[in-house]
């Protein structure tokens, strides 16, 4: 039967484990999910509808993990937004409300650009060759963000208060819009937002936190809108594999967030930049040779 061989359970487990890590590490999950099947000789293509539905299920799992991990923050943020709507303004001391609206301002351009550009960009850059090349460029983008980062004075407030005071409305819009680059396989959404966060003056830890908060609604919304396809004809033959992959993705996503939040207390984007550049260059040479 042809359907049974679309994605095997072994492939699903590997892709799920990889997705959970690569979605949150600034190394492009989409790029890796295009490059890895090609490297391993799997007959999986990025634009196949069943594979997109499969990937979306793993994205949903990642979004749910992000939501759970930052649940208390989200409760405070949503309450802050509610307070500001009631008061018809943002109190200068209400950093939860400010952060909430920064996330809204950052999500709007990402959502609009995503809707307008998703299909044309995915079709134009669907090959593993282009994904490998853009992964290399992603490394350069991360390097660039490290070189050009603005070092704002760090104050001893809690994390969200510090983010709310450092990031302005234009900065949030720009960081949000930068997520659109991740529509091209090889470029990383979290890399773009972390890099953007550094450019507007956030520390590495705060940039990672802002990137994860910003990622939750956009990944979650995209996944929720696409997941119904899994229950239709598109999902025939891959529902079980998608479920297994989602559980694997959730597991690695949880550990990835915990790891990154500690990692960025002292470290920079440079190791990820080196990895992306070297892996992207090696794969580019391999695919073209």
């Amino acid at each position: 039967m042809i359907l049974a061989s679309l994605i095997t359970y072994t492939q699903a487990i590997i892709l799920g484990l990889l997705q959970g890590v690569s979605e949150l590490f600034p190394i492009s999950s989409l790029g890796h999910s295009v490059i890895l099947p090609k490297l391993l000789g799997w007959n999986i293509h990025q634009n196949d509808p069943y594979f997109l539905a499969f990937l979306v299920a793993t994205h949903l799992a990642t979004a749910i993990v992000l939501l759970i991990f930052f649940w208390r923050d989200w409760v405070r943020i949503v309450k802050g937004i509610g307070r500001s709507l009631r008061d018809r303004g943002i109190d200068p001391d209400d950093t939860d409300a400010k952060l909430g609206w920064l996330l809204v301002v950052g999500t709007i351009p990402a959502g609009v650009l995503g809707l307008l550009l998703q299909d044309p960009l995915r079709h134009a850059f669907a090959s593993a060759k282009s994904a490998a090349f853009f992964l290399m460029l992603n490394g350069l983008v991360l390097f660039g963000a490290e070189l050009l980062r603005r070092r704002a004075p760090q104050v001893n407030e809690d994390d969200d208060a510090r983010i709310a005071r450092t990031v302005g409305w234009r900065g949030a819009f720009g960081v949000g819009a930068a997520q659109a680059i991740a529509l091209i396989p090889g470029f990383s959404r979290s890399g773009a937002t972390m890099g953007g966060g550094l450019l507007v003056g956030l520390s590495h830890k705060d940039a990672a936190r802002f990137a994860f908060l910003l990622a939750t609604p956009i990944i979650g919304a995209a996944a929720v809108l696409k997941v119904p396809e899994l229950f239709g004809h598109t999902g025939d033959g891959i529902r079980g594999q998608a479920l297994v992959a989602s559980l694997c993705s959730a597991l690695t996503a949880w550990f990835a967030i915990k790891f990154l939040m500690r990692f960025f207390e002292t470290q920079t984007l440079t190791p990820f930049a080196v990895y992306c550049f070297v892996a992207g260059a090696a794969c580019t040479i391999y695919f073209f040779s």
Binding site: R88, K98, L115
Partner: peptide, 27 residues
């Protein structure tokens, strides 16, 4: 959905702009 949310954001902007004046941090 995208058009709806951007429209909603425009209304929220108008809602804030017609609220009481504050000294800082109004969007």
């Amino acid at each position: 959905i995208a058009a709806f949310f951007v429209g909603l954001a425009a209304f929220v902007f108008a809602w804030f702009r017609t609220g009481p004046k504050r000294t800082a941090a109004s969007p």
